[in-house]
Design a protein around this nucleic acid. Structure first.
Lengths: 221, 221
DNA sequence: TGTTGACTGTGAAATTATGCACTAATAGAA
DNA sequence: TTCTATTAGTGCATAATTTCACAGTCAACA
């Protein structure tokens, strides 16, 4: 799928979604390299670490500009900064969590979000017994307050951690609030409106995509 | 990517990986329909629920055989059974978990695996303080026992829930034991050997693939 | 100041995936 | 029985993605 339409600040448009899906991986490797003191990296080296061809990396980057030096490769720090800016990862994002059951609490206590700029600053639950309680530094709020709080706190990303039978309803509510990016942990096939990005975390589905290869005896990778 | 090579029981080979990635989703929807008492379904209806074109569903299924009736559609129960068999989901799989920290325990207590036939029947940890303890009905075992236990209990899938700096090492150990399917929760780009399938559960990466669309102001879906 | 080796950026080609549109089959109505 | 409305399966066209391969640039060094 290709991203059509114009973008505000002169950002090149027409970037395939597959490319967008790969950039965060480049960012991650580059971060590791920067932490490791590496200054320059070639598409060859980057490709080896990510198991993709060097040509693909160069082509991906070419959608956004020219970041390398012929004969030298890429400056790790510089490329990292560029990619972060392109992806909107040079800033922090306010995230709202819906569902503070066992899974929701695990998400709240997951230490991996904040260092990457994702701050869960509000938690909601439909259960009146949970509303008003403080869980992981957050005061659990009623679903009735969703719209108000999303706007007041400038929340642009929603995380859904409710039982699957309620997940689509919650996703609909979030979209009604103007949320355009949703991370759902529910094992369902979510229906999203146009212009809304939804990603699923679904370990069972992940396992199910591997068993074919186990049973078919295929030795391919 | 296309799956090359022959398969033992006359299973058609040459099935693109994208197709394999979609089949579990078909299976999920079909299960829901079966539970809902639906008897027949057309590719049109299935496509609407999954947001894919009917043609794609028919094409995907055609890699494996002919399951529908012209003018009628597919028998839900029958198609579900066929797809489960194709994917190796008509049986149960033994799973080993490495890492019983907070994340590992959350995985052990996740109720979604067993009903789908994935049984975590062994848990390992490198921490001597954890070895020997009973967590979630399982006796935590030392990493030294990995190879023996994997073979004894016929474990064919590994789940990795260790800190990221140890993840690649654990993945290597699992591959050395002959494990061909690994689900990793570590936020790294894992290096796998040929013939080994690795899937990542990485919520941060998922979030990072969405922010581009939030910042670019693109209204596309 | 040439010359060499390394490596990017990019059109073109190859490959892979998707969607169209048609044929054939089927059930049910008239 | 015949007609109509559906819908699967599929060859082919189109679209998307990946890879190739090479011109152009750069740094290092003789």
């Amino acid at each position: 799928m290709v991203i059509r339409g114009s973008t505000p600040m002169g950002m090149p448009s027409g970037v395939p979604e597959v490319v967008i899906m790969r950039l965060p991986q480049y960012i991650r490797i580059l971060s590791e390299m920067l932490a490791g003191g590496v200054e320059m990296v070639s598409s060859q080296q980057l490709g080896e670490m990510l198991q993709v061809t060097p040509a693909q990396i160069r082509k991906d980057l070419s959608y956004f500009g020219r970041f390398g030096k012929q004969g030298r490769g890429y400056n790790v720090k510089g490329l990292l900064a560029e990619l972060k800016e392109i992806m909107g990862l040079d800033r922090s994002w306010n995230v709202g969590l819906v569902g503070v059951g066992r899974l929701g609490r695990a998400i709240l206590s997951y230490p991996g979000f904040a260092p990457e700029g994702f701050h869960i600053i509000a938690a909601f639950d439909a259960d009146p017994n949970l509303v008003g309680r403080v869980i992981g530094n957050l005061n659990v709020q009623s679903m009735n307050e969703l719209d108000t709080v999303v706007k007041e706190l400038d929340i642009s990303i929603g995380i859904v951690a409710v039982p699957s039978r309620h997940a689509q309803g919650v996703i609909d509510r979030l979209m009604d609030c103007g949320i355009k990016a949703i991370l759902s942990y529910a094992p369902i096939a979510p229906q999203g409106q146009a212009g809304v990005k939804i990603r699923n975390i679904d370990p069972v589905l992940s396992l199910q995509t591997m068993t074919f290869y186990l049973s078919s005896g295929s030795a391919e990778d």
